[in-house]
Amino acid sequence: MARQGSRGGAESKKMSSELFTLTYGALVTQLCKDYENDEDVNKQLDKMGYNIGVRLIEDFLARSNVGRCHDFRETADVIAKVAFKMYLGITPSITNWSPAGDEFSLILENNPLVDFVELPDNHSSLIYSNLLCGVLRGALEMVQMAVDVKFVQDTLKGDGVTEIRMKFIRRIEDNLPAGEE
């Protein structure tokens, strides 16, 4: 069967991580120049991440063959072990589950976005990797989960690890047809 699309050439499509880190860095610094205040930059990064997330989920589903998650713990596992591995080459650990099972933390030992980055003092409230929060939020919204994602620890700010906290808000039922499981 003739295959359309060039999935077979995946290896040749790999980009160097330096190029990626530089591109992301240039993006953030440009946003800082354009917006002048950290809060606005954080919001823009989140929005951009959201737009990436709503498309990235389709690529993820297409490549990983993962089915629908029926449980937030399953979702956490898939995010940490499959998605992060596939797109950033790292596997964060999952900790700090809330008693209701609706909140958990992803601990990243190293964050490929921030190789060689040092936050200057005048940008102390900048959430440099906020794009990731938007990506996670956008992607999960496309599979009918409303979540809140934020950084609670950041190596750029002097913490030992980078910690992302994810909270399940609700299932998005509006577009879910009756009888959907």
Binding site: D71, D102, R171
Partner: peptide, 21 residues
Amino acid sequence: FPLELVLRPHDERVLVAFGQR
């Protein structure tokens, strides 16, 4: 408490919307 499953009403019943164990 708290229940790890998310419940919702549907027709005349209460169904599990999310969560599985």
